[in-house]
Amino acid sequence: MSAQNIAPELQQPLFEYLLRLGDDRLILGHRLSEWCGHGPILEEDIALANLALDCIGQASVLLKEAGTVEGQGRSEDDLAYFRDAIDFRNLLLVELPKGDFGFTIVRQFLFSTFSYFFLEKLQQSAHKPLAGIAAKTFKENLYHLRHSRKWLVVLGDGTEESHQRVQNALDELWGYTEEMFYMDQVDEALMNAGIAVDLQPLKEQWLSMVREALQEATLELPDPDVYQHQGGRTGFHTEHLGHLLAEMQILPRSYPDARW
């Protein structure tokens, strides 16, 4: 329904933009869901399943909207299950294996902090369906941020071992944070139409919120000159994504004529 009132030259960028947002949450949700039944305490099995459910739910509405904008009749499931790794547009950050609990928490904290500022702005998007999705996602993300920040502080300021583990995770993940602020002609075209968010100004806000949490967690800010990996937004992924998709997509790919 929303496809009609989009300028033809914006259709492709908007489709691409929605894929980026949807894929981030689909892949992150997948990684979170891997914890279900294997968490460090029963309460975390419940909490991480909550986060995973939110992310996959968000992915589902974003991909559905992407299908609508594309106008080729592809559903959210078609987009989730019948694209190859090179056609996925998620950040490298979210596809890295789940690691230990500290790694999962640090990744969630870095992404949720970014999402906090990003979704705050996206609620004003001129593309109304996207603004609506952003408003709901913003609320869910508040819990993700609070939960991951809480554990970041507990683990950072817990024992020597937990401190070292999260510091290592933070150092490793830092090289995947710059990509969150990646922008190209997709963003530019949509920014001019008031649809997309300018990510540049968010970086300072993000960094200062991260800095403040790290301080409370007694963690060190990683070396700012660490090499920054990029490529997810244009389909140049790590090897991990292909394995993730092989697992996720196996049933619809094996039985393309079946309904489940």
Partner: peptide, 18 residues
């Protein structure tokens, strides 16, 4: 959970296990 055949089934299963 990671192999559920649709996003809806995946969410229902996740919610159930939760």
């Amino acid at each position: 959970i990671t192999r559920a055949p649709s996003l809806r089934r995946k969410m229902v299963l996740l919610a159930k296990v939760q």
